[in-house]
Lab assay of single mutants.
Amino acid sequence: HNLTITQGKLFFHYNPKLCLSEIHKMEEVSGTKGRQERNDIALKTNGDQASCENELLKFSYIRTSFDKILLRWEPYWPPDFRDLLGFMLFYKEAPYQNVTEFDGQDACGSNSWTVVDIDPPLRSNDPKSQNHPGWLMRGLKPWTQYAIFVKTLVTFSDERRTYGAKSDIIYVQTDATNPSVPLDPISVSNSSSQIILKWKPPSDPNGNITHYLVFWERQAEDSELFELDYCLKGLKLPSRTWSPPFESEDSQKHNQSEYEDSAGECCSCPKTDSQILKELEESSFRKTFEDYLHNVVFVPRKTSSGTGAEDPRPSRKRRSLGDVGNVTVAVPTVAAFPNTSSTSVPTSPEEHRPFEKVVNKESLVISGLRHFTGYRIELQACNQDTPEERCSVAAYVSARTMPEAKADDIVGPVTHEIFENNVVHLMWQEPKEPNGLIVLYEVSYRRYGDEELHLCVSRKHFALERGCRLRGLSPGNYSVRIRATSLAGNGSWTEPTYFYVTDYLDVPSNIA
């Protein structure tokens, strides 16, 4: 807008934040220059609390790290170098490059900038070799853009010569660093050979998330399962459950009422301010606690030095998902009996873990797994792929695949051998790939016309006998059925096997 004052003059007093240069501009645009008398524009009460600059400061050096910015700028000295009290560095987070010096300023003089007072450097006698002032900004957020400017702080001049310097606002972004852990990993099994893994992005990506790394490792069953005799009275049979499938998407929606109208769909109840505040506090606490764990609990591995020492970490090797089922080394339970199943799973520490690289999504279907087997899954978020990966501390989750139908069934015939004193040795093959492992066998036998009897055969007993022995049988026709019990439950009964026990007292003698 054009402003013209045809008559009258300007009068400025007691404006401590208004620089004289701005008042002189007002004289020019209003056409009143030359009308004012000496005392109409006070030299001592206008701009006496402001830094009124008329020179431009330029930054000469900028260096960044993930949490620091090192700045240096060209030296500046007023005509009387004693008038320079120091520099004021202003900075704040700036997602967009549209910041002005006066953003967030209120009537009390406060604003949204963080201000650092910096002492002037030592003055050199040689004007050509003056030290460049600077400042190291610490405690910054990774991968965050900051708006920065600097200006001088000078003393009051009796001659009211307006001098000083100020830089333009520059924008500097800190470097990326390792992201925080992925949030809320959930693993479920939808079949006997697959596990579905879902997660949420890290709360602090500290860069642009480029991919996720998912490692999985087959877990050995508890050692007590191999040692305890679950045929003993009072000892509860062990059981394991597989990871249940995901709930429906509708039930997972946030901010939804727990109660549904019987007449149909209901609208979600909005969260109160107290609920939102509580969630923010919980989120802040979780982030602080995660940072504490990362800094205190997890110790970084030592990389190899120039002395030739090897990095103890196993090298990563990509495998196809079809090879995942046989990740671990199978060892027989008892070496003397080769027909026992290889369900003991000690994992070799030198073995390469299978892994998958996930790009542009937060889910993965891990296939080719062994049925009813526990897996430990390790999830890392990465925001750099080359020249070397920059990934987060791992988040861990466990899951067990679903049982395989008929995996616990005894394959092959049940054979028998009759000894003296009416002892019958029953023999059968253990299931080759049971659900988890076989903890015991149930032997059901009966003599024709009598009630059915049951015998429990422990895992250890089966390994020693290759089956079991029935003792003290009365003469007669017998039928026997056997079924295995694994961590997933009972298998199917075998087809009945028949044998006849004679009275050993009636056996004919070869003595003449």
Results as ranks from 00 to 15, higher is better:
residue 393 V to T: 11
residue 477 N to V: 04
residue 477 N to W: 09
residue 317 K to A: 06
residue 249 E to I: 11
residue 431 P to I: 14
residue 444 S to H: 11
residue 320 S to R: 14
residue 250 D to G: 06
residue 459 R to Q: 11
residue 315 S to A: 11
residue 488 A to P: 02
residue 478 Y to Q: 06
residue 223 S to N: 08
residue 431 P to S: 02
residue 507 V to Y: 03
residue 503 D to A: 05
residue 379 L to N: 01
residue 223 S to C: 12
residue 240 R to G: 08
residue 206 N to S: 05
residue 230 Y to M: 04
residue 297 V to N: 09
residue 493 W to T: 03
residue 236 K to E: 09
residue 471 R to G: 04
residue 214 V to S: 03
residue 207 G to T: 02
residue 395 A to V: 10
residue 453 L to G: 04
residue 467 G to A: 05
residue 431 P to V: 14
residue 379 L to T: 09
residue 490 N to G: 15
residue 355 F to W: 08
residue 284 S to H: 12
residue 264 G to Y: 13
residue 294 H to V: 11
residue 286 R to H: 05
residue 402 M to D: 01
residue 360 N to A: 13
residue 406 K to D: 13
residue 214 V to R: 00
residue 283 S to Y: 14
residue 440 L to E: 03
residue 306 G to F: 09
residue 274 S to H: 05
residue 310 E to I: 03
residue 394 A to Q: 13
residue 453 L to Y: 01
residue 427 M to H: 15
residue 373 T to C: 02
residue 358 V to K: 09
residue 424 V to S: 01
residue 459 R to G: 05
residue 230 Y to H: 03
residue 277 L to C: 03
residue 437 L to K: 02
residue 420 E to S: 05
residue 265 E to M: 11
residue 247 E to F: 11
residue 400 R to D: 06
residue 495 E to Q: 06
residue 260 E to L: 11
residue 466 R to D: 11
residue 399 A to P: 05
residue 220 A to N: 08
residue 299 V to Q: 06
residue 269 C to Q: 02
residue 377 I to T: 03
residue 471 R to H: 06
residue 483 R to G: 01
residue 449 G to L: 15
residue 421 N to K: 13
residue 259 Y to P: 14
residue 356 E to T: 09
residue 343 T to H: 08
residue 223 S to A: 08
residue 278 K to A: 14
residue 318 R to V: 14
residue 219 Q to S: 08
residue 485 T to V: 02
residue 337 F to Q: 10
residue 385 D to H: 13
residue 455 L to Q: 07
residue 502 T to Y: 15
residue 439 V to A: 13
residue 269 C to R: 05
residue 362 E to V: 09
residue 435 N to Q: 02
residue 493 W to R: 03
residue 360 N to G: 04
residue 501 V to G: 00
residue 446 R to L: 13
residue 424 V to A: 11
residue 503 D to R: 07
residue 371 H to V: 06
residue 331 V to D: 08
residue 406 K to A: 14
residue 372 F to C: 11
residue 335 A to K: 12
residue 236 K to A: 15
residue 262 S to P: 09
residue 315 S to Y: 14
residue 441 Y to T: 02
residue 230 Y to E: 02
residue 306 G to I: 11
residue 312 P to M: 12
residue 204 D to P: 03
residue 297 V to L: 07
residue 262 S to Y: 07
residue 447 R to A: 05
residue 304 S to K: 00
residue 329 V to G: 10
residue 506 D to S: 13
residue 498 Y to N: 02
residue 378 E to P: 02
residue 444 S to R: 07
residue 225 L to T: 13
residue 279 E to V: 03
residue 251 S to F: 06
residue 282 E to G: 10
residue 305 S to Q: 12
residue 388 E to N: 12
residue 249 E to P: 11
residue 249 E to C: 06
residue 495 E to N: 13
residue 342 S to P: 09
residue 488 A to S: 07
residue 492 S to N: 02
residue 420 E to G: 06
residue 445 Y to F: 03
residue 345 V to I: 15
residue 285 F to E: 05
residue 471 R to V: 03
residue 447 R to L: 10
residue 319 R to I: 05
residue 315 S to V: 11
residue 484 A to M: 03
residue 287 K to W: 15
residue 380 Q to M: 14
residue 495 E to W: 15
residue 482 I to C: 02
residue 323 D to G: 11
residue 468 C to S: 08
residue 358 V to G: 14
residue 308 G to H: 14
residue 478 Y to C: 00
residue 313 R to L: 07
residue 384 Q to A: 11
residue 211 H to M: 05
residue 458 S to I: 03
residue 378 E to S: 12
residue 398 S to L: 07
residue 403 P to R: 11
residue 361 K to R: 03
residue 343 T to K: 14
residue 470 L to N: 01
residue 265 E to A: 12
residue 353 R to P: 09
residue 285 F to V: 10
residue 341 S to F: 07
residue 215 F to L: 09
residue 433 E to Q: 07
residue 404 E to S: 02
residue 439 V to H: 03
residue 235 L to A: 11
residue 327 V to C: 15
residue 235 L to F: 09
residue 329 V to H: 14
residue 355 F to K: 12
residue 358 V to A: 12
residue 266 C to S: 14
residue 396 Y to T: 07
residue 297 V to A: 10
residue 261 D to M: 04
residue 239 S to P: 13
residue 463 A to H: 07
residue 370 R to M: 10
residue 424 V to G: 02
residue 247 E to H: 07
residue 264 G to L: 13
residue 389 E to H: 07
residue 473 L to K: 01
residue 420 E to W: 15
residue 250 D to E: 12
residue 389 E to Q: 13
residue 228 L to S: 06
residue 425 H to N: 11
residue 434 P to V: 07
residue 474 S to L: 09
residue 468 C to T: 02
residue 345 V to Y: 12
residue 425 H to Q: 10
residue 449 G to K: 06
residue 422 N to S: 09
residue 501 V to K: 06
residue 251 S to Y: 04
residue 221 E to F: 13
residue 372 F to E: 06
residue 228 L to H: 02
residue 317 K to Q: 11
residue 487 L to V: 05
residue 264 G to P: 08
residue 312 P to L: 14
residue 410 I to N: 03
residue 287 K to E: 08
residue 258 E to A: 13
residue 241 T to W: 04
residue 220 A to S: 10
residue 304 S to E: 15
residue 350 E to K: 10
residue 452 E to R: 09
residue 317 K to H: 13
residue 370 R to Q: 08
residue 313 R to N: 15
residue 259 Y to M: 03
residue 424 V to T: 08
residue 361 K to S: 10
residue 485 T to F: 08
residue 503 D to P: 15
residue 329 V to Y: 15
residue 252 Q to C: 10
residue 357 K to P: 09
residue 310 E to K: 01
residue 275 Q to P: 09
residue 231 C to E: 01
residue 284 S to D: 04
residue 391 C to L: 05
residue 264 G to A: 15
residue 263 A to S: 09
residue 336 A to C: 14
residue 369 L to V: 10
residue 365 V to I: 00
residue 302 K to L: 12
residue 271 K to R: 12
residue 463 A to R: 10
residue 368 G to D: 05
residue 337 F to I: 06
residue 291 D to K: 03
residue 227 E to T: 06
residue 419 F to V: 14
residue 298 F to D: 15
residue 366 I to K: 09
residue 243 S to K: 04
residue 481 R to H: 06
residue 271 K to Y: 13
residue 340 T to K: 14
residue 273 D to I: 14
residue 283 S to Q: 06
residue 470 L to Q: 01
residue 264 G to E: 07
residue 405 A to S: 07
residue 250 D to N: 15
residue 234 G to F: 06
residue 224 E to H: 12
residue 339 N to Y: 11
residue 359 V to P: 07
residue 245 P to Q: 12
residue 409 D to V: 05
residue 501 V to R: 02
residue 288 T to N: 10
residue 218 R to L: 14
residue 319 R to E: 05
residue 422 N to A: 04
residue 357 K to E: 13
residue 290 E to P: 03
residue 319 R to M: 05
residue 325 G to Q: 15
residue 420 E to N: 15
residue 215 F to Y: 05
residue 216 W to M: 13
residue 247 E to D: 07
residue 491 G to W: 00
residue 243 S to F: 10
residue 328 T to S: 15
residue 372 F to G: 05
residue 259 Y to K: 09
residue 407 A to R: 11
residue 465 E to A: 07
residue 339 N to V: 12
residue 361 K to P: 11
residue 320 S to F: 13
residue 422 N to G: 08
residue 258 E to F: 14
residue 435 N to H: 03
residue 399 A to H: 08
residue 399 A to W: 04
residue 256 Q to Y: 03
residue 477 N to T: 04
residue 461 H to V: 10
residue 331 V to S: 05
residue 243 S to M: 12
residue 437 L to E: 15
residue 412 G to E: 09
residue 205 P to K: 08
residue 506 D to E: 03
residue 358 V to P: 10
residue 509 S to V: 15
residue 223 S to R: 08
residue 258 E to P: 01
residue 307 T to M: 08
residue 317 K to V: 06
residue 395 A to Q: 04
residue 293 L to V: 11
residue 325 G to P: 03
residue 244 P to G: 13
residue 238 P to G: 04
residue 295 N to H: 03
residue 371 H to T: 11
residue 397 V to M: 15
residue 506 D to L: 06
residue 425 H to L: 03
residue 373 T to A: 04
residue 243 S to G: 08
residue 241 T to C: 06
residue 327 V to T: 11
residue 288 T to V: 09
residue 438 I to H: 02
residue 207 G to P: 04
residue 474 S to M: 06
residue 246 F to W: 03
residue 213 L to F: 14
residue 263 A to D: 12
